[in-house]
């Protein structure tokens, strides 16, 4: 029995965090670019960024319940603001690091035209978008359809995904012919990866501002401060742009 308890204790204690590590909570839609940025951050500064991905809502719940994250890269502007109001973030540390772009996409290269006229096509049997109540990209898609005057017409044909990732998966797997996705999901190095897409003009929906904020556990960390600064560096901005986001001025 004592041996069993010793083994258990040993198993429970193994864990290590380096002193100059910074633990960053990252909105799921920013996973791929952030992995690249973290690699060049380590090269440039010697600090290491450990990335924890999740939906912004989930990360918010975790931060409210004591998560040890030093920096949050949210998928919206509201969450960092709320955290600051709750006293969980360092005041005046909020900053926009990327602006999302919405696209209507189909894996079929001939399906989506460059001005989105396909939306008015009665043959479009189904259309995927993220749930407007849950995801900022879903809200932007709803605003776009309303701006086009097509919301009521298309409503019975909409397939709601729980996140923009799921919306992408619905379309990529061929279960839905076309859908609203984040441009970052279908673009690499400034080029469309596959299929056909309509880049939704920014004026059709409220801006998809993605803000970062320094959280309380990172208040006195040099590595956390360095990461916040690095997010505005030319290297980081180039990666953000390559992935189909607009970079803040």
């Amino acid at each position: 029995m004592r041996r069993f308890l010793c083994c258990l204790a040993a198993l429970l204690m193994i864990s290590s965090v380096r002193a100059d590590d910074v633990l960053v909570a990252v909105a799921a839609n920013f996973t791929a670019p952030m992995k690249e940025i973290a690699a060049s951050f380590e090269q440039a500064t010697g600090h290491r960024a450990r990335l924890a991905f999740g939906s912004t809502g989930k990360l918010y719940a975790q931060i409210r319940n004591g998560a040890p994250f030093s920096v949050l890269l949210a998928a919206d502007a509201d969450t960092p603001e709320m955290l600051e109001r709750l006293g969980l973030a360092v005041p005046d540390s909020r900053r926009t690091y990327a602006i999302g772009r919405l696209a209507l996409w189909s894996p079929d290269p001939a399906r989506v035209d460059l001005s989105g006229r396909i939306l008015a096509d009665p043959d479009l049997e189904r259309l995927a978008l993220a749930n407007p109540k849950l995801a900022p990209y879903g809200r932007a898609a709803e605003q776009t359809l309303k701006a086009l005057g097509l919301w009521e017409t298309l409503k019975p044909r909409l397939v709601l995904a729980e996140s923009i990732s799921q919306s992408f998966q619905f379309v990529a797997s061929g279960n839905v012919p076309a859908g609203f996705v984040a441009l970052s999901q279908i673009m690499r190095d400034g080029r469309l990866l596959s299929g056909s897409a309509w880049h939704v003009p920014a004026y059709m929906h409220a801006p998809l501002t993605q803000d970062l904020v320094l959280l309380r556990p990172g208040a006195d960390s040099a590595a956390a401060a360095a990461l916040v600064k690095f997010m505005g560096s030319p290297q980081a901005r180039r990666v953000i742009d390559d992935y189909g986001y607009r970079v803040p001025p």
């Binding site: 864990s15 290590s16 965090v17 633990l23 909570a25 799921a28 839609n29 996973t31 791929a32 992995k35 450990r50 990335l51 924890a52 991905f53 999740g54 989930k58 719940a61 975790q62 998560a67 040890p68 994250f69 990732s165 999901q185």
Partner: peptide
């Protein structure tokens, strides 16, 4: 585990969550 663990590499990032991360990263 995603909710309670927070997806932290080396500490709480288990295999199923590593798969989710790979999918999110394309």
């Amino acid at each position: 585990v995603l909710m309670i663990g927070g997806n932290i590499p080396g500490r709480t990032q288990v295999l199923s969550i590593a798969i989710y991360n790979r999918v999110e990263a394309f």
